[in-house]
Amino acid sequence: MEKKIKNIFVQGAIAPAFVAESIQKHSTKTDIGAHSIFMGQVRSDVVNEQKVVAIEYTTYEEMALKKMHAIREDIFSKYALTCMHIHHSLGRVAAGDICLFVFTSSGHRKAAIAACEEVVERIKQELPVWGREIFDNETHQWKENK
């Protein structure tokens, strides 16, 4: 039986309370010995003397979710994970707010840390998500993934 494709996208910023709740939910899973968490935050960069106040994220959801499913399956086959949770913002996210939350869990730390790092890198390189930087004067430009 094929696994269901999970929707990783949320509208707007990822709330700190959501992150805390996600961590708390794992306290009953006593076979887990390690968690690794990555949180991407929108930076208030200065580009061409203009300050970034937000990033507006867009995607082609169907394509992105299929790609993310393939990445998930690959990571689960490579690392001894108990679970993996990924949440990525769509829409406008203000500077200082969380736009990406990756949470991996395993029996031991090395698998959780390595898997989390690889998932983040693959999201940045492979997922068709685009960010448009919004400047303090409301002009904008497409952001380059780094």
Rank of each mutant, 00 (worst) to 15 (best):
S89I: 03
Y79R: 07
F38C: 02
N48Q: 15
A80G: 03
Q24R: 07
I123E: 10
A112S: 15
E2Q: 14
F103S: 02
T59G: 06
A15N: 10
M1H: 11
I75A: 02
I123C: 08
C83H: 15
I75Y: 07
E61D: 10
K146A: 14
T58D: 11
K51V: 15
I98S: 06
I23G: 03
G96W: 06
N7P: 00
E2K: 14
V10S: 10
C116T: 01
S105I: 05
A95H: 10
F135E: 01
L65G: 10
A80N: 12
K29A: 07
M63H: 10
R72Q: 11
M68L: 09
H26E: 15
C83L: 09
I71F: 04
H87E: 13
E61P: 09
R132Y: 13
I32C: 08
S106R: 01
A95T: 11
G91M: 04
Y79M: 04
E144H: 07
T30G: 02
H26K: 15
S89N: 10
P16W: 12
Y60H: 11
F38R: 06
E56V: 01
E2C: 06
V53T: 15
V102N: 02
E2N: 09
P16R: 10
E56I: 00
G33L: 02
H87A: 11
V42P: 00
V10W: 05
V52D: 02
K110M: 13
Y60L: 01
D97A: 12
G107C: 03
I55V: 09
D136T: 08
G96F: 05
S105M: 11
Q24M: 08
I113C: 05
A95R: 10
E118H: 05
E62L: 08
Q125R: 14
D74Y: 05
M84R: 03
G91R: 02
V52F: 01
T104I: 04
Q141A: 10
A95D: 07
G33S: 04
E49H: 14
A34S: 13
I32G: 08
E61G: 01
K110H: 15
A13Q: 12
D74P: 00
Y79G: 13
V120E: 02
V42N: 05
E61F: 08
G12W: 00
L90N: 04
T82V: 05
K146E: 15
T59C: 12
D74C: 05
L81H: 08
V129T: 10
F103L: 09
H85P: 00
F9G: 05
A15V: 03
K6W: 07
T30Q: 14
K4W: 03
A115Q: 04
H108R: 05
D74M: 06
D136K: 00
E133L: 07
T58M: 02
N7S: 00
